[in-house]
Write a protein that binds this DNA or RNA. Structure first.
Lengths: 194, 194, 194, 194
DNA sequence: GATGAATGAGATTTCATTCAT
DNA sequence: CATGAATGAAATCTCATTCAT
């Protein structure tokens, strides 16, 4: 692996462990096993490193959700949504602290907002992905014509997002079973019939 | 108003404007119209100021939600939930950047987590409040016995929370009408019959 | 003496001893007997310190020359010009390295050129001062009507300036007698008659 | 052109554009179209590059002045001195910022002073050159026996040197006409008779 | 001879906190 | 209680130079 990616991985680890505020270039360099000066051979500045890692997280988030698109028409809708929700729960949990951190640096957010939207990288894209999946299922007649698919996506992913947020805030680490339980209660409520 | 609160208000303003990372004691003092030294006559350190402001925000969040409890039995459930959701949307929007900021300083979060839970101040309490409201309505027979009230609360507030997050992330400022529209689509999906 | 002036004096000493390039904030602080952080309570940045010292030097330069204005009409013109030239030689010698240093940072010069000219602080003002002195003498009939006073000022101070430059460049330290000798040869040539 | 000279020219350009303080090896390499490592195949270090360029400038300065020696006995003295002064004015202007820059690094100056004097490269040599020219004219009887030729050289070149310095300091760019005007006023004052 | 990534020493600047007044 | 100058630790970033390829 080249040094650039080694630095990025090290930075990701430090960011998730220590938080953005306590992530120093010295610490990143130590974790990457190189000198501080080397960071600047591969990134323009510390902000660049943060953004590189952040974009990686956002891509992860999208990756799993878009890959679930191919499930349209297979298994049951309910089953597929359970998988979607569980993946989202996990991804949100992993990236929550990093993504939230950007609110502590609104000027960075401001500076790169345009880029995020241009490259379609925002966290909002997850909801769109679920929406699109549901529309496909609707085309195949596997869900009711009247269903507001976007609203369903917002409810499902919204509850997962907030749940992940709260678990992070409270420091709770959920078992897989607990997550399945949460997801099922939510899905049962969204689709009372089954 | 005493200086302590003047400082707290100034700090809140600076925190919401500049973000936690760019909030310096010098800036807080300037905004409060006092000297930097004075901050330390009213707070032990900068972390204390941040926590004081943060707890204020969390109280706000709870305040509006608990006040809506008295609505149980009045108007229609649907109407009340619309008010709940709109209030949540607004409160979440206002406090999002501040509350998320804490993830950039996980050691602060760690240090005060116990206090938050002991004093019942976590952001998760909002969901409990809605749950409790719904339970009251169930007791009065205004909603179905089988309804998983906690799941409904999680879905409703979760979607509002994520929505507020995304609007903040994208820099979108919604009109009241847009918010009403969002809330209605979500509620229509949660309560298909009306 | 307050710390600001202590810092300025220390900076002047370090600048004249080590040169601009080797003048670090650490060294200035050490020479001023304070911490590096203290520098920033009195100056915005290192550039500010340099400019403060530089303007002090330029004022010195002007000071001695304007004070010599009151000599108009007294002693002999030749005698007065000898004093002017000797003072100039000394001032130029002392400030040469500092004033020249600015050419190693053309962007600083560019940034403050307007300020220098607005405040009439440029090194060119010395020549004006001598010109004005000579005009006064002309009004009193002590020098020929046809004399181009500005040209005389430029010749006299120009030769002193370049002489000071060369002595600094070569590392020669002249005795007072050598300077008197230089000045007299120059004046004898400028005013052949006496 | 070999790489060594390409580097030297690039360095000269960067030095005159950005100033010594802002001239980095990276920038020189970029301007020379080679790698930073290559600089060290042709020069021992950055100081070497600077000195190489500086000595080039000093040679320029001397070059034009020594070439004017052959004019002795031709045209009129006054005419020749006008050419000398104009050349000096131009050369001084071009090299001023570079030559002055050395005062920001007195240790470099100290380290190479001996070399400069041994190789007769100092800027003071210009005055000597004019002196020698005038002595030749004196031998041919074209100027008065009593004239202090060295003093004339110092006055003439000194005023040109300071004038060039001031124009550089003030950021004024003179037209050829303005320079001719300056030189003529100075020469008229030095040689009142014509 | 040419390269350019890696280095590490060092420079400037920021900032929370202290403390004498 | 209020002040604000002084501090010193730490953070980011620069840059000349080296060296393996």
């Amino acid at each position: 692996m080249d040094l650039k990616n080694k630095i990025a991985e090290a930075a990701e680890h430090v960011l998730l462990t220590n938080g953005l505020a306590k992530t120093t270039t010295k610490e990143i360099a130590r974790a990457a096993g190189c000198s501080e000066g080397s960071l600047y051979n591969h990134f323009r500045n510390k902000e660049d490193i943060f953004l590189y890692v952040l974009r990686g997280q956002l891509k992860n988030l999208m990756g799993t959700l878009t890959s679930l698109q191919s499930l349209a028409g297979k298994e049951t809708v309910r089953n597929n949504l359970e998988q979607v929700a569980l993946s989202a729960l996990e991804d949100f949990s992993n990236s929550m602290s990093l993504i939230c951190s950007i609110f502590s640096e609104p000027d960075i957010l401001l500076r790169h907002r345009e880029g995020f939207t241009l490259r379609n990288e925002g966290p909002h894209r997850a909801n769109e992905a679920v929406d699109i999946y549901l529309l496909k299922e609707k085309q195949q007649g596997r869900i009711r014509e009247e269903m507001d698919t976007r609203a369903v996506a917002d409810l499902l992913l919204g509850s997962c997002f907030q749940h992940a947020f709260q678990m992070n805030f409270l420091g709770n680490v959920e078992s897989h079973e607990e997550r399945i339980d949460f997801v099922n209660r939510v899905l049962n409520t969204l689709f009372p019939g089954g």
